[in-house]
Measured scan of single mutants.
Amino acid sequence: WKITIYDQENFQGKRMEFTSSCPNVSERSFDNVRSLKVESGAWIGYEHTSFCGQQFILERGEYPRWDAWSGSNAYHIERLMSFRPICSA
């Protein structure tokens, strides 16, 4: 599993790669995730830290803005603060 997060939209700004769970992006000096690329595996992104709040399934691909992973939710969530890989047995 591999995911790359960015602190600006369209894959700009600070970037960081992960191959395992991140319970709080702010502990990695990110205020928020504004864009991301899922390089391999599937991940679950969460609205809040500690894997809480609205969940987003993140499959392999590029997500240049928050609405790319938020989709058409009843209330739009511009925040992604934690994530972890989906492990299959």
Score class of each variant (00 low, 15 high):
residue 33 V to M: 05
residue 13 G to L: 00
residue 64 P to Q: 07
residue 2 K to I: 05
residue 38 V to A: 03
residue 81 M to G: 07
residue 43 W to H: 01
residue 64 P to N: 11
residue 66 W to A: 14
residue 34 R to A: 08
residue 29 S to Q: 09
residue 18 F to K: 02
residue 54 Q to W: 05
residue 52 C to K: 15
residue 86 I to P: 04
residue 29 S to L: 10
residue 71 G to Y: 09
residue 18 F to A: 04
residue 65 R to A: 11
residue 87 C to I: 11
residue 11 F to G: 00
residue 1 W to R: 08
residue 18 F to T: 02
residue 20 S to V: 09
residue 15 R to L: 06
residue 27 E to D: 11
residue 80 L to N: 00
residue 67 D to M: 10
residue 1 W to H: 13
residue 35 S to H: 01
residue 26 S to A: 13
residue 74 A to C: 11
residue 71 G to A: 13
residue 79 R to T: 15
residue 18 F to V: 07
residue 56 F to D: 04
residue 4 T to F: 12
residue 12 Q to P: 00
residue 69 W to A: 07
residue 15 R to G: 11
residue 73 N to A: 12
residue 38 V to E: 03
residue 46 Y to L: 02
residue 52 C to D: 10
residue 12 Q to V: 09
residue 26 S to E: 09
residue 43 W to I: 01
residue 11 F to K: 01
residue 49 T to P: 14
residue 43 W to Q: 01
residue 30 F to A: 02
residue 26 S to C: 12
residue 32 N to C: 14
residue 49 T to V: 15
residue 22 C to V: 14
residue 89 A to D: 09
residue 11 F to Q: 02
residue 78 E to L: 10
residue 75 Y to K: 15
residue 11 F to H: 01
residue 8 Q to T: 06
residue 55 Q to I: 03
residue 27 E to F: 05
residue 8 Q to D: 09
residue 32 N to Q: 12
residue 63 Y to L: 02
residue 58 L to A: 00
residue 1 W to I: 12
residue 17 E to R: 07
residue 12 Q to H: 11
residue 39 E to F: 08
residue 69 W to T: 08
residue 8 Q to G: 08
residue 68 A to C: 13
residue 67 D to P: 07
residue 27 E to K: 09
residue 25 V to P: 04
residue 37 K to S: 08
residue 13 G to P: 01
residue 1 W to Y: 15
residue 23 P to R: 08
residue 44 I to Y: 15
residue 80 L to M: 09
residue 5 I to G: 01
residue 21 S to G: 10
residue 24 N to V: 02
residue 22 C to A: 04
residue 70 S to I: 09
residue 22 C to S: 01
residue 22 C to D: 01
residue 51 F to G: 03
residue 62 E to S: 13
residue 34 R to E: 04
residue 68 A to E: 07
residue 28 R to G: 10
residue 82 S to H: 00
residue 9 E to L: 04
residue 77 I to C: 13
residue 62 E to P: 05
residue 2 K to G: 04
residue 61 G to K: 04
residue 73 N to Y: 11
residue 51 F to N: 03
residue 84 R to S: 10
residue 33 V to H: 02
residue 70 S to Y: 06
residue 59 E to N: 12
residue 75 Y to P: 15
residue 34 R to K: 09
residue 52 C to T: 15
residue 31 D to E: 10
residue 71 G to F: 09
residue 20 S to P: 01
residue 11 F to L: 05
residue 20 S to R: 09
residue 10 N to A: 08
residue 13 G to F: 01
residue 11 F to P: 02
residue 35 S to I: 00
